[in-house]
Design a protein around this nucleic acid. Structure first.
Lengths: 332, 332
DNA sequence: CCCCTGATGGCAAGCGTTTTCCCGAGCTGG
DNA sequence: CCAGCTCGGGAAAACGCTTGCCATCAGGGG
């Protein structure tokens, strides 16, 4: 294991000079000749600085912690892609944590980020509005901030007292509702996701507001926030008897589940029932009928979050504009 | 920023005792009473050990580096899920690197893993058979191993001199071919992926072997390894005029692209042309017609890789059995 | 010709842990 | 009753790096 001392010795300079030559400390310069000697010694020895040692000597690490619920979900993986890209551009490594939707685990992961003295924490998606759960999370975050002095960004959930960026859930859903009404649809069911899930709540509320008095919501069906949740919820809708014109699922993976449920029941989308989602995940483009949705710039969301924490762009909660995308699944 | 010294002071013990109380050093025990004092002091002060300091003092880190090409690709994200799960169970954090299919970047990420003195390196998928490229990669890996003394596992590509686990690409593809022939199909096209891509080569070779003399391959169409590659390649197949009974894409995302291309050309799958893929990615279950494929236990693959490097199960290259899954897309 | 200044090299003090080593206290067995 | 243990606590070294500070040297102004 070659250390900086080895490099210094090989170059015939002191440890300090070697250090300065290699990472070019500011306010100190090392003569070109020495620098060159050091650099080539490092090259010859294939020296790689010990990140942990640097972190401890400098008092700050170069890692960014990213916490998601499920990395196989296209929503999260798209955001993760944006985060890794931006982090890499900023010279940070990303530590990936997967909660598997377990709040306990989320807290454990935040604590782990604290242990790593991460330069930044990006927490993606899906908070509950359960008071005690939220308080626990908040205090874990507070401790992280206090211990590391670094910033935290929430993606998709501007509920806690930290920087955050989120899609325009409410207004996007409202726009979607209006577009569907304009198309002539007049009865709706909403697959709301978990009852305590804030994103689901916002999208549900926005959708209802957009509907105004022009149309009615016949059913609100809660379920888990994933594909199987959408599938199950849709089966409930179908079992209930009278079908609405359009079923709005608060996210795309749920909408996909709903679509499959409809198909399995022999229903033709959009003839028998329309389906709409939210997010515009990449996988959507391969399913038929093409799903109406609200496009959220997911990768961008991740990049912005990194900017928020790394560049210290403290603009308060950011809301990212979204756009309604009407496709075949709600054709009339 | 509370340190272990603070805890020790608060508990009225020495630094060493505090350290031993908290992480229970082996071959030394601390009296229950003191241990309790230390533990509760740590609790009160909300102490979190400094991971970097621990890493440097212990001489080994607790991180595992995971390198994938594209985290939004379900193939990679499924494997990543397995890796994070297993890593977490083993008490390791995972550092995620995304190469974006750039070999340069892969090497940079391996070097970064070296800097982090990662406990293990898991490199997923998609090597070329380009000699110089491969040599460069190999030497980056060698340096990693030499510097850290830790293990490297390759997932899906047992080409380099490291531990590896891969699906049975060749025999799986051969099985698939035989199954399709048994179904009565007799002419085939293969979307091979990039010409220099070893996985693609193996699957192509296996498929041809499985066909034997029973059937012919009319076309071999190379393309990139992703959805758009499959899409483009399928368009070539269609443009060529005579359609084969079945188009075999060497992975599922390509198969999905091919399916879309077929659909856009007004072809009905499987009536006009059949399509088969490889991997059985989770997203597959939501597309119609259901795609014939070869199931690879992706998450398991990731878990095994972690076992390989963390548990030191050195069994030589592991080959994971795969199973043919016949679905509607190749119905006759 | 001397003193001051700016540039550059090196020494050494940290950073927060773990771990080795030493030490005293209490036991055990002869 | 004492030599020789074992047991558990603490002091201090070590891990690999950064950085504050001092030292040295060359050059320039008075």
């Amino acid at each position: 294991m070659v250390t900086l001392s080895d490099v210094a010795r090989a170059a015939g300079v002191s440890l300090s000079t070697a250090s300065r030559a290699i990472n070019g400390s500011r306010d100190r310069t090392v003569s070109p000749e020495l620098r060159q000697r050091v650099l080539s010694a490092a090259e010859t020895l294939r020296y790689a600085p010990n990140a942990a040692a640097q972190a401890i000597a400098r008092g700050r690490s170069t890692e960014l912690s990213l916490i998601v619920h499920d990395i196989t979900d296209p929503y999260f993986s798209s955001i993760a892609a944006g985060v890794t890209k931006a982090a890499r551009a900023a010279g940070a490594s990303v530590i990936l944590g997967v909660t598997d939707h377990d709040p306990q685990e989320a807290i454990a992961l935040i604590d782990s980020a604290r242990s790593h003295r991460s330069q930044a924490l990006v927490l993606v998606g899906g908070l509950t509005d359960d008071k005690t759960e939220l308080a626990r999370l908040q205090s874990a975050i507070d401790e992280f901030v206090e211990a590391t002095g670094s910033a935290v960004a929430l993606v998709g959930q501007p509920r806690l007292a930290v920087r955050s960026v989120a899609p325009a859930n409410e207004s996007g859903a409202a726009d979607l509702a209006r577009s569907l009404v304009a198309l002539g649809h007049s009865s709706f069911a909403i697959l709301t996701g978990p009852e305590r899930h804030v994103t689901g709540q916002e999208r549900t509320a926005g959708f209802r507001r957009g509907l105004g008095t022009a149309a009615a919501v016949s059913q609100l069906v809660p379920s888990s926030f994933d594909r199987d949740g959408g599938y199950g919820a849709m089966r409930e809708v179908i079992a209930a008897g009278t079908l609405p014109d359009v079923v709005f699922a608060v996210n795309d993976v749920m909408a996909v589940g709903a679509l499959v449920a409809a198909r399995e029941s022999g229903l033709v989308v959009p003839d028998d029932v329309g389906i709409a989602g939210f997010d515009d995940i990449p996988t959507l483009r391969d399913i038929v009928p093409a799903l109406t949705t609200v496009r959220v710039p997911l990768e961008r969301l991740g990049e912005i979050a990194v900017g928020l924490v790394l560049a210290d762009d403290d603009h308060g909660p950011e809301e990212l504009p979204v756009t309604v995308v009407l496709r075949d699944s709600t054709r009339r």
